[in-house]
Simulated scan of single mutants.
Amino acid sequence: MPARFQLWRDDQVAAAGALLRSLHEATRSSRLTGTSPIICHHDPGPNNVVFQQGRPMAFIDFDTAAPGDPLEDLGYMAWTWCISSRSQAPPPRAQADQVRILANSYGLETSERFNLVDAILDRQNHNALWWRQHLNTPEPRVADSEQILARIDWSRREHDHTAINRAVFMNALR
């Protein structure tokens, strides 16, 4: 679970969505994409963004960048910027409104909006699996066992929160 949980303003979420779209468009049709439409960052959370005067301006930490589908990144971004199961987080309806703002600023096509919630749930599952695979790797690891287990638990709690509130998120994207 990120140590620096915070709430993001709507304008910050919108700027993050536009920034992600510009990254994706810059890689579209590149030889590097192979059979995929774009190069995904695969970790476009707030912790991998440079801010200037409170606005997202650039991505950093491209160690997991690879060919992929735009919804992989957008699902992860929606989760890490807009959705949280923490008690101090806004209610699910407010979180869903921010997911809609993100989708709008990204320019997500109407036909793809109904796939966004599935992409969020997929990224939460993927995150738990990614951390789980590091439990049995030899030292040095990306984190100690206690941290890894905490991140797996966090990913599962976030997945449960998103799944329970699926209809709220879907309605906001209509």
Rank of each mutant, 00 (worst) to 15 (best):
E139I: 00
V168S: 05
P46H: 04
Q12Y: 05
R21T: 13
A26D: 14
P91H: 02
C40H: 05
R156P: 06
P44G: 04
P67I: 09
E72F: 11
S84P: 06
G107D: 12
Q95A: 07
A14F: 13
R156S: 01
R100I: 00
T80R: 07
F59P: 11
I164Y: 07
H159M: 09
Q147V: 12
R4H: 15
P70Y: 08
L102D: 04
P56I: 06
Q124W: 00
I148Q: 07
L74S: 02
P2Y: 13
M77D: 07
L173P: 03
D10A: 11
V50R: 11
I164L: 14
I38K: 04
E109P: 05
D61E: 08
L32S: 10
E146K: 00
H159N: 04
G54C: 04
R55E: 15
L108W: 06
Y106H: 10
D144M: 00
A128D: 05
P56W: 05
T162Q: 00
Y106N: 12
L116E: 06
R123L: 09
D122I: 00
N171D: 11
L108T: 00
M170Y: 00
L173I: 04
I60F: 03
I101A: 02
L149P: 01
R166H: 02
H134Q: 14
T110D: 09
Q12R: 02
N125E: 08
L108K: 10
T137S: 11
D153E: 09
G75S: 04
L23Q: 14
N48M: 09
I152F: 07
G45C: 13
R4D: 15
L121Y: 00
A119V: 01
Q98K: 10
D144C: 01
Q6K: 13
T33P: 00
Y106W: 08
P138K: 00
G54A: 06
M77T: 07
D69T: 03
W81A: 08
I120C: 12
Y76G: 03
N115P: 01
I120Y: 01
V142A: 09
E158K: 07
L102W: 03
E139W: 00
I152Q: 10
D153G: 13
Y76F: 12
D61I: 09
W154Q: 13
L71G: 08
V142T: 12
R157N: 15
S105H: 14
F51K: 10
G45F: 08
V50E: 05
D11V: 12
L116T: 01
T64C: 03
I120D: 03
I164Q: 13
S87H: 15
I148E: 07
R141F: 14
H126T: 07
L129Q: 14
H134K: 13
M57W: 06
D73M: 10
N47K: 12
P92Q: 03
R166G: 05
R31S: 03
L108V: 11
A143Y: 08
V168F: 04
T27N: 08
A96P: 03
A103E: 00
A94D: 13
A103N: 01
V49W: 02
N115I: 03
A150W: 05
